[in-house]
Design a protein around this nucleic acid. Structure first.
Lengths: 206, 206
DNA sequence: GCACTTTGATAGCGAAACGAAACCACTTAC
DNA sequence: GTAAGTGGTTTCGTTTCGCTATCAAAGTGC
């Protein structure tokens, strides 16, 4: 049934192999793989996306699980919790100075350093392909796509003025431009309505 | 401490994200992520490498864990066990017809089909970079590298004669040329002595 | 005011994966 | 022949992970 051109096969396997072998759990580091991913997420998500729900969607898991992971990072002093002013239900997580320090011993560092020896041209092409794959894959699985404002269809760059996001209908803080966003929309992809995240907790829907 | 050029950062995260999101456990498939990896391994390893130890080394886990995974696949009729003629201790696992059928519903198929839409040139470049990363990474972590004969330093292609592997000092069956091998040696990498696998079970050494 | 949805928290459960240790059977080195 | 090493298996206990289910609080639509 599935067409298995040898090359795609090999590529796919390399992807999972590399992913698996560097996703964490390197002993001696006091964080688990899921916790590292969580910490990384909150260090790279924009203000709008630093919530438990967004992380759950990013990880393609339930909010319950996400809460667990976040709670542990909070107890270790790596994340701080703030209530939202706009929405009484919502909370916002911010990475602490200690959290940023810990990120320096991210087990992903090995992989990163290996990537760093690649030539710049190779890196660029590699990143482009990865981003492409990621978007198509998420779309195929009906999952929320994540990406940075630069490549987002809601992003409007105005010469001489502040950048603007058509999705939340607000100006963007310069800090947030390079960060990942839950409301990311890839070009050429049919969009779901603006704000809603994927609802994974099916239990309650019954 | 770690130099985090933004691009390498992003690349690394994409790698683990894609790996994680397509490595299996898609419900309804009756195999777990580890079991899929195992099945894939035995479908792509050459005769020399279809052993529990080789798989353990490939997965960077212990032989005990590897045995468990293999046992389940055997009980499902996806793998068959043969004793080695050369070494009474050793066993060889062969994927069954049913196993090959099951591989058609590999959850990795989604990823593979997405890769297939890439242009050939892009695919080639992507594969090259991945292979490069994988080798360097394994080397850095002091792990066994895996690869196919084509790129192995032990491989001697003789015009008009059978291909030859200098490592096991034997001719190679044509079927095995494209398969992955425990004794893979990457060019320009300092080699450990020929046959031995990484010994992970430290317990007994004490 | 009412029903419904959404965000988040919590407790409990089960499966998966691992590490450690003990074990057998066989091979190799001395 | 004995001793040491290797390939493989098994058992036990632990950790991690993610899910279900249920709950409370807050927002939304009528």
């Amino acid at each position: 049934m599935t067409v298995r051109s040898t090359s795609s096969d090999e590529i796919a396997e390399f992807l999972v192999h590399i992913g698996r072998s560097s996703r964490g759990e390197d002993m001696r580091s006091d964080l688990t793989a899921a916790q590292w991913t969580c910490l990384r997420f909150f260090s790279r998500a924009n203000k709008l996306s630093r919530t438990p729900s967004a992380f759950a969607s990013f990880q393609a898991t339930t909010r319950g699980t996400a809460t667990q992971t976040i709670k542990i990072l909070e107890s270790k002093g790596l994340l701080l919790r703030y209530r939202s002013d706009l929405d009484g239900r919502s909370v916002r997580l911010e990475i602490t100075v200690l959290g940023l320090e810990i990120l320096n011993s991210d087990p992903l560092a090995d992989l990163i350093s290996v990537i760093n020896v690649l030539r710049l041209k190779e890196q660029t092409a590699f990143l482009a392909t990865l981003s492409d794959l990621s978007i198509t894959l998420a779309q195929m699985k009906g999952r929320q796509t994540f990406g940075t404002c630069e490549e987002c269809i809601h992003y409007v760059s105005i010469l001489g003025a502040a950048d603007y996001c058509a999705c939340i209908a607000a100006e963007l803080a310069p800090v947030d431009i390079g960060k990942i966003c839950v409301n990311f929309g890839a070009a050429g992809v049919v969009q779901s309505p603006p704000i809603p995240l994927i609802e994974i907790n099916k239990g309650r829907a019954l």
